[in-house]
Design a protein around this nucleic acid. Structure first.
Lengths: 211, 211
DNA sequence: TTAACGAACATTGCATGCAGTGTTTGTGCT
DNA sequence: AGCACAAACACTGCATGCAATGTTCGTTAA
């Protein structure tokens, strides 16, 4: 007997997934009793989960009025990208130092797959492969604090991506990723950071013009 | 009748303060019933508070064994400083753009006070004034996401500061701060970011040598 | 018809109950 | 004394109760 896992943890992951996939679009009320009934658990773990989602910016709480899935407004999205630019730059810098044959191989595999996906015009898989590329770099960076913060940003960005089209274009993304890869492979931390930041800041600029 | 504030929120702030001031040193057990009895509230809001502290890295939870105040080990501290370097750099960059007479006046006031405090050798006030300088820049940066993440980092760093002496020296800190101020005032975002990052990376280097 | 009102209903946030689990303490044995 | 073991105790995590508050919807008045 060792579940070793809280019910609240499972509820948290369920709700998080539903929010990120858009099954719970912005504005959806996160009613604790309703969710508890649906999942067949009591209100306590559901409450824990909703509070945790609130801490991560995936739920917006108001006193005595419960929580709703937030809309990520333009200013918030800009701020998210400002943080993301700084942190992705740092992961690239750190990953340059830790760059090895394993990372090289995996990144090249992701890039090849990305080429195929773009050629096929599959936007959904593009999102996944894009995320995989950045995740691989985060892992190589070996900085849990930075990685955790990027994941938190990623969540809110996923919400925003459904309402605003800030995609800079799939082909452009792969191009940027190849540049980042080459900078990492070159072993120059400054180049790695610069390439990663430019990748993000291009989106931030697009965002700022899209007032 | 308008408390408009959750009991859990008050408990959270109380516990957070006790952890950050060292009243609850690392290893302290955060027993929900004990805290509830002491504060004269029920276990529910205390539980909420402890879970929230866990999300911020101010409590370490183990399944069926409750939470304790964490020790920040060396690797964790390095990762915290890596994130901090990236984010302080970004705030300085953004603050450069938003630099105005109000910010200038307040920063100069803080720097003058810092000089006095250092001359008096008051380490406790040094900590406060140091934090005030960085907070002023965070505020000027107008990026809530970046600011929030820096505050989260700040909490864990405060825990670590009591066990490891990573202080680079009070006088050196003021010197760095003046350089940052001048870079901000110059209006060059690159210079602002570079100055802020160097301030942090100096500490990171100290840390890395202090294996 | 539409707007204002109020009663019925649902939800929130805090309090408390409880089974399972971990910890501590006291006891007996070597 | 030192150790094994068990019983007593305490805590965790989930379930549920409840008063206060918020929401909804039907009814009434203009």
């Amino acid at each position: 007997m060792e579940p070793g896992e809280r019910v609240g943890e499972r509820v948290y992951r369920t709700l998080r997934r539903r929010i990120l996939t858009g099954e719970f679009p912005p504005g959806t009320r996160l009613s604790v009793p309703a969710i508890a009934r649906e999942l067949g658990v009591s209100r306590s773990p559901v409450r824990d989960a909703v509070l945790q989602l609130g801490n991560e910016g995936l739920a917006q709480e108001t006193f005595n009025r419960g929580a709703i899935v937030p809309q990520i407004d333009h200013d918030q999205l800009v701020s998210l990208y400002e943080a993301r630019e700084a942190l992705e730059g740092m992961t690239a810098r750190l990953a340059t130092v830790n760059f090895g044959p394993g990372v090289r191989r995996r990144l090249l595999g992701i890039l090849d797959e990305h080429d195929e996906v773009v050629a096929a015009g599959d936007f959904t898989r593009h999102i996944d492969v894009d995320a995989a590329f950045h995740r691989e770099i985060r892992t190589a960076a070996c900085s849990p604090v930075v990685a955790r913060m990027l994941e938190e940003i990623q969540g809110q960005v996923m919400i925003a991506m459904r309402s605003t089209s800030v995609s800079g274009g799939m082909a452009h993304a792969v191009e940027d990723h190849r540049k980042i890869f080459e900078a990492l492979a070159s072993g120059d931390p400054d180049a790695g950071e610069a390439a990663a930041r430019q990748h993000i800041s291009r989106l931030t600029s697009l965002l700022r013009t899209h007032v």
